[in-house]
Each structure stands twice: as structure tokens, then as C-alpha cells.
Simulated assay, not measured.
Amino acid sequence: MAMVPPPITLDVLVGAVSETQRIRIGVIGCGTVAQIMHLPYLRSLPAQFEIFALSDLSPGLLDLLGERYGVPATRRFLDYRGLLESEVDAVLVLSAGSHAPQVLAAAEAGKHILVEKPLCFTLREADEIAAAVSRSQVRLMVAYMKRFDPGFRHGERLVHAMREPRYVQINTLHPSEDQYIDIHGVHRFGDIPRDVAQRAEKAQEELLDEAVGAVSSALRFVYHDVFLGSMVHDINALRSLVGEPAGVLFTDIWPPDSKFPSVTTVLRHAGNLRTTYTWTYLAEVRDYFEELAVFSSSERVRVQFPSPFLKHWPTPVVAQRMEHGALVEERVEVSHAEAFREELLAFHECVVSGSQPLTDTADARTDIAVLQQIFAAFDPAGLGGEAKTSRG
């Protein structure tokens, strides 16, 4: 039986930076995740980051956050292209929808990039981003914060030491986000010009046409909001735990054309390993549940993520095994370190040392490819829809 590895420390996670270098960072998109997580944690790391410039489509929000974080009016931009012309060293792309336009422009401007998931909506966009990053030789890291969670890293080490995993079970019970967001006092002004909002909506619909074709509006919502907005985290984590899926055996999305969807899929891996993944929206009960569990004949490891909108909640890892005929169960809470803050430290390390990001363009592209295979395996025939294929 493999020894239980020691907890991951911050130095092991991001590496020791011999000489701290302060990065001037520009934030593109100042919505929910920026206000709750990224901006406060950037400010908590003054030796690593200076919040140098802000960009958002909302004038009121831009002014409010500019004052709060000490960004002068001359470095607040309604158009992100103005921010890219400033003296920022790196950008944090948090805008809604596909991030491809902002990421491509940032790469061409020679700025290092930390971009929230999803990287983009289509494989074509991902390939264009990879080419732009290669040409410019900037560092691009995709913000899969769960990969930097100390609890997840501990569970990952346990799984990698496991002999012949047989079964992976992923369950996400997703309540209404408002029950969590409201405690943070997120600001919204509703002052984005109508023509600007309409152009953004049109661009998103065109990308959805390219990605999933002529499916119902409800299924388009499932693709961009559920698959790319939430399930992408678990697919990325799954791949880091047990490797790449070899195929999709089954997908169901139900109820048909519902505003409150559920998804179940079964993935095939090499050998005898299978994954069953159910994501379900259960709006009213304020108890977010997300667990990745890996089982073998002799060991079981469960990684239990808290709500992504709660700060400094640990990610427990529960491990079971037999010893001398007795069942042994260990529950480990590695750290209260916040995953969003840890990923910022990891990004800083990549920029100042030139190291390769853990979660890069290729990693994100594979996630999109897997999700599109999962989506394409759903056959809505008989549910009032039309059979379709994923287009990439």
C-alpha cells in the first residue's frame, strides 16, 4: 500500500521565486468573479501585482472599481484595446462569453495572459489562440482554480499512487448562484449601451452556431453555461487525475428544453476504467455539492469541493483502505489557502520565471474537445429535438 503523501505546501505548488518581481496587470471584465475573487486577491498580493488598469463595458462599474482599487481615470477603459495599449505587463481576461477576441489581441500586443475558463467556445478559436501565443512567445494560463487547490493537489497525489483504478464518479449538485453571490455585494449598473450588448450577443450566437449547430435555445444554454461554464472544471480535473477519456459511451440531458437542466454522461478510458458524471441544477437548496471520487479494488479517494463563491473553505479529501482486516478512513483538510489566490501566485511564477503554465492552451483545448464529444453523444430525437453533430 502506498504511503499517504505529505500535504502540498505553497513552495511545492508554485515554486520559490528567488527575486519577487511586481507585475503591472490589467483586468478585462469587472463582473462577478472579478469583484468576489480576483480583484481582492490581486490587492492582497502587492509584492507580486499592481492593479494597473481596468476595462469593462459598464461605465458606472468601471468608475466604482477604479476608485476602490486606486486605478486613475486615465487607466480605465471601456474598450479593452485601449488597455492593451497601456504599459501593462499582463492581463487577466474575465469578460463574458468567449475570451478569444481579448486573448488574441493581448497575445498580439505581447502581454502575458491569465484567462478565466472557458478559454473559448470552439476548437477553431483555440487553435488560433495557440498560434498567436506561439508567435508572440507570451505565457498564457487558463484559470482552472481547482487545479491549484491544496486539497485537490493532495487528492491527486493519492489517486496517482492508486493501483488500477476501476471507476470514477463525479457528482455536482448546483444550487442557484444568487444565494452565494448576494452575500458579497456584487455591483451591477445596467448601463452597458444597447448596441454594444447586441453586438456581443450576436457574436456569441454565431459562435454557438459554429460549435453546436441548429439546436434549441435551451441546449445552446446547456452548452455555453453548463458545459463550458461549470462542467469544464470537472473534465479538466478528471483528466489530471486519471488521464484522457478514450470515448463517450452515453449522454443524456434532461428535462428537455428546461431552464433547470441535468446532465449524465459515461466516459470510457483505457483499460477497464469508466467515469460516470452527473451535473444537475437544483436551484433552491443552498448546499453546493461537488465530488470527484476514484475507486479501485483496494482504495477509494473522494475530493469534495466547496462552492466556488465561498472564500478559504477547505477542500476535504476522504481516503479509505483496508489495514489488517479493518476499514481505515482518513479525512484530510490540507489548507484553508484560497484556490483563486494560489492560481494568481502560480501565474506570477510563470511570468517571472518563464516556466510553462500547468493549465495552458492545449489543456483547455482538450477540455473543449471532450465536452463537444459529450454534447454530440446526446441524441434528442424522441424528445422533440433534432439529431445533430458537434462542429468544433
Rank of each mutant, 00 (worst) to 15 (best):
S136L: 09
V332G: 07
L310A: 10
R24L: 09
A200P: 04
G155A: 11
C120W: 01
Q373D: 11
S335L: 00
T9C: 08
E329D: 02
G66N: 08
P308H: 05
L104V: 07
P308I: 13
F375T: 02
D79L: 12
S95Q: 08
G325N: 06
T275D: 02
V93C: 14
F378A: 05
L140M: 13
P306H: 07
E116G: 07
D287L: 09
L208H: 01
L267I: 14
P245D: 13
L54H: 06
A218Y: 00
V4A: 11
E343I: 09
E116P: 03
F221T: 09
A237F: 01
V351M: 07
R300E: 15
I181G: 03
L371C: 03
D89T: 05
G392C: 07
M322D: 12
V27F: 02
I113P: 02
F121Y: 11
R300I: 00
M141A: 15
L282H: 04
D191R: 12
F250I: 03
R302E: 14
A218P: 00
V133A: 01
T172D: 13
C30D: 06
R163F: 03
A346L: 09
R76E: 02
V168Y: 03
A346F: 06
P316C: 12
A203V: 05
V71M: 06
H187K: 14
W313G: 01
H99L: 10
D191L: 10
Q21Y: 03
R163T: 04
G190T: 06
L173T: 14
V303G: 02
V242G: 03
I183A: 13
V168C: 09
V332K: 10
R220E: 13
K202M: 10
T264A: 09
L54I: 10
L383N: 14
G185N: 08
D149K: 05
L42N: 11
A53K: 06
S258P: 02
D287Y: 13
A218F: 04
G185L: 04
G151Q: 07
V226P: 01
V215H: 02
L273T: 00
E19A: 13
V332W: 09
K388I: 00
P40Y: 13
E333F: 12
M322P: 01
V168S: 01
L39N: 02
V318K: 05
G392P: 06
A132H: 00
Q198P: 00
V266L: 09
E156W: 10
P175D: 05
S355M: 13
L344S: 10
K202Y: 11
V142S: 03
D178E: 12
T361E: 07
